[in-house]
Design a protein around this nucleic acid. Sequence first.
DNA 1: TATACTTATGTAAGCGCTTACAGTAAACGC
DNA 2: GCGTTTACTGTAAGCGCTTACATAAGTATA
Lengths: 338, 338
Amino acid sequence: MSILLRPTIADVARHAGVSTATVSRVLNATGPVEEATARRVRASIETLHYIPHAAARTLASRRTNTLGLLLPEIGGAFFQPMLRGVETAASEAGYDLLIHTTRNPGAAIARRPLAEHNTDGLLVFTDSLDARELTRLFRSGFPVVLLHQTPPRGVQIPAVTVENQSGARSIVNHLIEVHHRRRILYLQGPEGHEDSEWREKGYREALKAHAILFDPALVRRGGFNREEARLEMEQLLLEGVEFDAVFTGDDDAAVGVIQGLRHAGIMVPGAVSVVGFDDQVFSSTLVPPLTTVRAPTEEVGRAAVRQLVRRIRGEAVEPRLVLPTALVLRESCGCKPA
Amino acid sequence: MSILLRPTIADVARHAGVSTATVSRVLNATGPVEEATARRVRASIETLHYIPHAAARTLASRRTNTLGLLLPEIGGAFFQPMLRGVETAASEAGYDLLIHTTRNPGAAIARRPLAEHNTDGLLVFTDSLDARELTRLFRSGFPVVLLHQTPPRGVQIPAVTVENQSGARSIVNHLIEVHHRRRILYLQGPEGHEDSEWREKGYREALKAHAILFDPALVRRGGFNREEARLEMEQLLLEGVEFDAVFTGDDDAAVGVIQGLRHAGIMVPGAVSVVGFDDQVFSSTLVPPLTTVRAPTEEVGRAAVRQLVRRIRGEAVEPRLVLPTALVLRESCGCKPA
DNA sequence: TATACTTATGTAAGCGCTTACAGTAAACGC
DNA sequence: GCGTTTACTGTAAGCGCTTACATAAGTATA
């Protein structure tokens, strides 16, 4: 055990010949202190190597200075840029970052306290918390911001997401208009994944706009996941479903699709165009380079933190922030290299 | 502001008709409580929706139940599996996880308190903290575990890393013995990156074992980074340096190297073998599939947490844990698909 | 000069827990 | 039957801060 007897604010006060209140004031700039006094206090802090005790501060001030990030899991190419955005923004705003996955069996319930007491606010990523829990949090007035998720009915929790629908629409439009594809497969994300649903809407809109009949046989589940997508492709090929393009739902799935197709000897994009969504870091280096929709994932993380911080401060926040996406044309759709 | 008047332990005690001490005892199983009493207390907790206040607990018990993770940055394919390992293990051990990057200018100094007071122990990843700071931490007796880094001289901080040297040696051996490569380039990681130095040692050993003279012109900096590696390849090609294989130091750099080579019309692995290190998630899907050394990154994260927790508990820990790596043969070295 | 601020500082009451310590009653040993 | 444990519970003293409130001295206002 490391029972380190660290100096307390009282030690600093004594050393500087002032009261603890004054030390606290120079520490937090929370009241007037004569410059000479402040200097003396700062010097004492320095020489004693004093570091304020976070918990004591929290207890007394009722602020934790910590933000919680709730995720279903740590995985997916998605995760990294988002976390980077969150971490940067949190740090800039002077908050610590507590991370928690909710799929952690066992720990999940026991560690509920992440909310409410350990943090000043919560960032909740897609599907980390069920509607009941979200409702409870909302009712309690605890600051929460949702990422890539719409709150349940009647629950006014601010959300940050990206333009899924229009992004999907424009990439499918591209497939139809430029590459004359007509039988376009859509690979859905995991069951109930909200991004996937919006993307599917965009997909349908694009078809409709070009008078292509929606064929339910062309919508399958790819799980936003390399492996699952590859298996699904093999299954499709086995079933003899005909298609001339695949909108894979996300870039991870695109990797699996391209693998599956290549394995079956089908040329991409010669015979089948393949396009994704997100523009993840590896997408430009795939063979062929992947045409996709760029999603500002890191910015989502930043924006969510900004919203949460404003929410914590009691300032007004956008009920819903939808960040723009952009079509990124590369070669997997059939476009030629520049 | 959300001034939520949450129930305190006193409320629970009153409601259950016991003292706060008894409530605390059933909460922490820290003393004998009659089963009937305990049941009553648990019922009160339930009906009042009582959640213990973490900071108050910390202040009183002098334990934060939180582990800190210090990183230079959130990036690199490396990061994700490691974080997953850390998060899982921390959660399993009943600890929260506080994340901090140290390259965050400005915030860095102000938020020093991450150590010592906010956490029970610190996980420090390569180059997040300088030797002075590490020494200070060590002297103070604060529990720290290093990841992929050797502590400064005289500082006995336990470390967890992987078999860099033998992994590198075996993959270079493979290049020499199986594919008869003789002029093998080594791309170093970032300046002062310890993993890179060990890998270089392994590289040299393999050369020596096969009586190949070490040529300093064949060691260049690739930065463990896609872009930097690609640029370096272009530079090398421009300089006309001759080589028949590249050991890229890590898989990320391999991507850049393959790109650079392909761009110059050089066949991989026909003309030049390319091999990496780490076996990151994308490595098997590169074209050609990358031969590399598998590093148990997630396990490093787990192991580090386990060490740290034991350190916190005052139990004995391994001064240095070196996890095994394994050669993964795919096609980029010249091997044929199975 | 009296009045009212303003500025700088101190005093002390908590914040919500944990945990020695003490107390009581029942069980035990001989 | 009496001293000892043992099992359970309560009392209360902090843990290290923040922050109303009080105080004192200087400054401006009338």
